[in-house]
């Protein structure tokens, strides 16, 4: 081992030890102090009841599959629409100017409204028109609300990706005789999409969480199911169990997005 490596190894051991000790102290404080709070027994009984947890967990997991399903069918629509809006906003053809305006208004509008509000407006408003089955389904209109919001975000992310591709790439393609369309399709977009994968991963994590908002308009997905259990058992533990299920999905996904982001940054530096 070189002198330098030995020194760095020693520094690292020291840092690890300090981090370990300070973590232990904080943990110990939490474990000792929290139970001393006057309401702790009541909170533990209504939020961290092991029996209730075990009892509701399988049903919540089953309900969560509905969240996953709504997520799964929303994602392709979100990306297709997001891409269409991004391209509409980027086109320079004067004949298609209305499309550009439409894209800009769309993005401003649906990024500007809180998701939950849109879920209410679309999810209650449109079936309220008295549409025949199945067009009055809250699944359809809840999904529409999510797709409207998230496609607006994805459109902006894609557009920033497209604009981040250096003009020299476009020039090289145009000079080879490629049309504007082929240049976008074969040269710009593939690079732009790759570049915004991490940002879109974070978007997907947010979407997975926001699917739970559909519980407000009917579908018995995990949040709604937890609410039913709460009323049934007069206990809040089902909500904690639901949170645990969400974390099992969102934490690895967020970590993966961070990993991609770091890899991308390393590759570019």
């Amino acid at each position: 081992m070189t002198r330098r490596a030995a020194y760095e190894a020693q520094q690292k051991r020291r840092a690890n030890m300090i981090a370990g000790v300070s973590t232990m102290i904080v943990l110990a404080l939490v474990i000792v102090l929290v139970p001393l709070a006057p309401g702790w027994e009541a909170v533990r009984a209504s939020f961290f009841n092991g029996e209730v947890f075990v009892r509701v967990f399988p049903d919540l997991l089953r309900a969560f599959m509905l969240d996953v399903a709504i997520f799964a069918w929303s994602v392709p629509m979100i990306f297709a629409l997001g891409l269409a809006i991004a391209l509409a906003r980027g086109n320079a053809n004067p004949a298609l100017f209305p499309l550009r305006i439409f894209g800009a208004v769309y993005v401003d509008l649906f990024r500007g409204i809180p998701v939950v509000l849109l879920v209410y407006l679309v999810g209650f408003g449109i079936p309220g028109l008295g549409l025949p089955r199945p067009w009055n389904s809250p699944y359809i209109w809840g999904t529409v609300a999510l797709v409207l919001t998230y496609s607006a975000y994805v459109a902006e992310v894609l557009r920033s990706g497209i604009e981040s591709i250096h003009a020299s790439q476009r020039n090289a393609a145009i000079c080879l005789g490629l049309s504007e369309r082929d240049t976008m399709r074969y040269v710009i977009l593939p690079q732009a999409i790759r570049r915004v994968v991490p940002a879109n991963m974070n978007m997907l994590v947010a979407l997975q969480k926001d699917v739970a908002l559909l519980s407000f308009i009917g579908p018995v997905e995990i949040l709604r199911q937890a609410g039913i259990f709460k009323s049934l058992l007069a206990n809040f533990t089902p909500y904690v169990a639901a949170a645990v299920i969400f974390l099992c999905v969102t934490v690895p996904a967020t970590r993966y997005a961070d990993y991609l982001l770091n890899k991308d940054r390393d590759a570019r530096s």
Partner: peptide, 30 residues
Amino acid sequence: RQRIGIVFQSFNLFPHMTAYDNVALAPRRV
């Protein structure tokens, strides 16, 4: 543009394609 080729100082190859695909793209599409 097909009749005048241009090569730049900074190469400007398409980084997401193999060397072959860089070359084959324009003949294929144009």
